[in-house]
Structures are given as C-alpha cells and as structure tokens.
C-alpha cells in the first residue's frame, strides 16, 4: 500500500515538473542568426540588425539570470525574425554582471568570445547551459571549444581577466542608467523591466510591438 502511494506520488511530481518546465527554443544559433546583420559599435557593444534601423533596443542582460534565459528562449527568436531581420530594429546587448556568482564568469567569457568574433554563438552556449552546467573555467572553455573558438586564446583571455574591468564598468554604467535588474530594455529612451513579449495584454508591461507602434510612424 505505502509503496503504491509512493509510486503515485513520484509520478505526480514528475508530471508536475514536466508540465511546469518553461518552453524552450531549440533552434541553433546558425538558424537564429541567419540573414541578420551583426557587428560591434564604437563603445564595444555587440549588436544585431541594420545600422540604419529606425529603432534601437538596448538589452541589459546577465548570463546568471534565469529570466534573461527566459527572454532569450521565448521572445528573442521572434524578435529577430519579425523585427531585426527586416531592418526595423537593431538589438544591442550590454552584458552586465550583478545577479549571482555565475554572472561575472559568464560576462567575461562572452567578451573573450566577442574578441574572436563568436559572441552570439557563445552567448547561445551560455544560455543553453545556464542552470545545467555551472560556469566554471573548465565548462566555459568547453563551451568555447563547442563554439569553434581557439581555446588557447580563449583560456588565456579568461584567465587574465582581460575583460574584468570592462564588465565592471558596463555594470556600473547600467546602474547609473537606472537598471535595477535583468533583463532590462532601453527603447526610445524609456527603460522597461522584465521579460518582454512581442504582444502583451498586461497594461503594466507592454509588448514590443506596442512599444514600437508608438516609435515607428
């Protein structure tokens, strides 16, 4: 009898865990980034989209933040496909680190990947592995290998803490800009907090389409 109850309890919990898992995006970085222009601006921030795009979205993100992963998996693919690829939006990323002990290693490693021109692919690895494989040196180098980076160069960059002060400076700049948490979005001079969706029915948090409607005539 007790074994039966125990088995039923385990089955119920497994079902709850499966149903409660957030929806994930299984697209490869190549699929997501195909046809999307990418570059680095004058201040060193990576961006996706046309330089002539009428609207720029600045995304403050932290690689230790599960809600940034949530945005990356849920809204970002649609944002790239619907708005960035056709030249309406340029998405600029400000990697910052202030949430937890995964934040700093993640941001510094991402900038080491940026140095080798594989920022977006490495960022994909960071978010995919967030909460699965901790951002230890070994794992970060392993992500670099998977991404196709020169691992010796990457490891040297990471070990030297080459972008440590850069990440610190960007984090301080974000705080000065009023960022209290991640993800945060600066769109048309206004700061939006939390995981934005493309369309929203929540009056407290408009969707990206609604925000753009007010900015693009």
């Amino acid at each position: 009898m007790y074994i039966g109850i125990g088995l039923i309890a385990v089955l119920v919990v497994v079902a709850l865990i499966q149903v409660g898992k957030p929806v994930t995006n299984n697209s490869s970085p190549e699929e997501i980034l195909s046809g999307v222009e990418q570059g680095i601006n004058d201040q060193g921030f990576p961006y996706l989209g046309s330089q002539n795009a009428p609207v720029e979205i600045i995304l403050y993100e932290d690689y230790g933040c599960h809600n940034c992963k949530s945005f990356f998996e849920t809204t970002e693919p649609d944002l790239l496909e619907e708005f960035v690829a056709n030249g309406d939006i340029r998405l600029q990323i400000h990697p910052i680190a202030f949430v937890n002990n995964q934040s700093k290693p993640g941001a510094e490693a991402a900038l080491c990947a940026l140095e080798q021109g594989k920022y977006w692919e490495y960022r994909h690895q960071l978010f995919t592995n967030q909460g699965v494989r901790p951002f230890t040196r070994t794992n970060l180098v392993s992500f670099a290998q998977i991404t196709g980076l020169e691992t010796d160069v990457f490891a040297s960059c990471y070990d030297q803490g080459k972008y440590s002060s850069q990440v610190r400076a960007w984090t301080e700049a974000a705080k000065t800009a009023g960022v209290r948490g991640t993800p945060s979005f600066l769109i048309g001079g206004k700061l939006y907090e939390g995981v934005l969706s493309i369309d929203s029915t929540n009056p407290d948090q408009p969707g990206i389409r609604q925000i753009l409607a007010a900015l693009i005539p």
């Binding site: 957030p22 948490g181 995981v195």
Partner: peptide, 29 residues
C-alpha cells in the same frame, strides 16, 4: 504586486515568484 519577471541582485521571493518556474500550466505554484 505584478512584479516584472527580472533578476535583481540579492534575490528573494520577488525573484523566485517572478521566475518561469513559479507556474504550472499558467497556475501559480
């Protein structure tokens, strides 16, 4: 409280409750 789904330094109930894991099929845990 309608807390935005974001991560803030220090964590706490707002952060946990704003996470995508705080709901099962749209029903708050």
């Amino acid at each position: 409280r309608s807390t935005p789904a974001f991560c803030a330094p220090g964590g706490g109930c707002d952060v946990v409750n704003a996470s995508p894991y705080s709901e099962i099929a749209g029903i708050p845990i």
